[in-house]
């Protein structure tokens, strides 16, 4: 129905993605790393920022990328693949990987923009590889060995969600 395939993450995918995110937190001396689908859904998080509202964060990061992407097209650019927001204490570095996933790194003065950029580049390559494979699999309709949990939902299951 849509041009973009559905994003389906298996446990193995999640583990590999998380590995890269955790390594990036360490290598870049970052406070936190978030991976967000362009549609605003949080895919993975790593780092020390506990208790932050990650659902809102994901939606706003995606809105930010969407708005600047629209702006880019308006002036004849395909996309602005890198964003940097500088705050008094914390900064946010945002990049796009595999055209569809947003990598947001939050860091303070224990790190530097140069270091973050360097480490993001390396992690970005690895993440691109992982997500390319995930999307490729989604295009081939998940492969035959993965069963969708939704094939067997009944009308009753759906009704039960709303029985309040």
């Amino acid at each position: 129905m849509s041009l973009t395939p559905q994003l389906v993450l298996l446990e193995e995918d999640q583990r590999q993605i998380l590995d890269v995110a955790e390594r990036l937190v360490r290598d870049a001396n970052a406070k936190a790393v978030y991976l967000v689908d362009k549609n605003g859904q949080l895919v993975a998080e790593a780092g020390e920022l506990k208790g932050i509202d990650t659902t809102s964060l994901a939606s706003l990061v995606a809105g930010n990328i969407a708005a600047s992407g629209g702006l880019a097209k308006l002036i004849g650019e395909e996309e602005f693949p890198t964003h940097f927001h500088q705050g008094e204490r914390d900064n946010v570095h945002i990049t796009l990987v595999a055209q569809r996933i947003i990598l947001a790194v939050i860091f303070d003065d224990r790190s530097s923009l140069g270091l973050v950029r360097l480490r993001v580049k390396k992690a970005g390559n690895k993440l691109s590889e992982l997500f390319d494979a995930i999307f490729k699999r989604a295009e081939s309709e998940l492969g035959d060995n993965v069963e969708s949990p939704f094939a067997e939902i009944s009308e009753e299951d759906i009704d039960n969600l709303f029985s309040d």
């Binding site: 583990r15 549609n39 895919v43």
Partner: peptide, 15 residues
């Protein structure tokens, strides 16, 4: 498109 996360056992839909 819906995002299905088997690891977190979550399904996310956008309305």
């Amino acid at each position: 498109m819906a995002f299905i996360n088997y690891s977190a056992r979550e399904i996310n839909c956008k309305l």
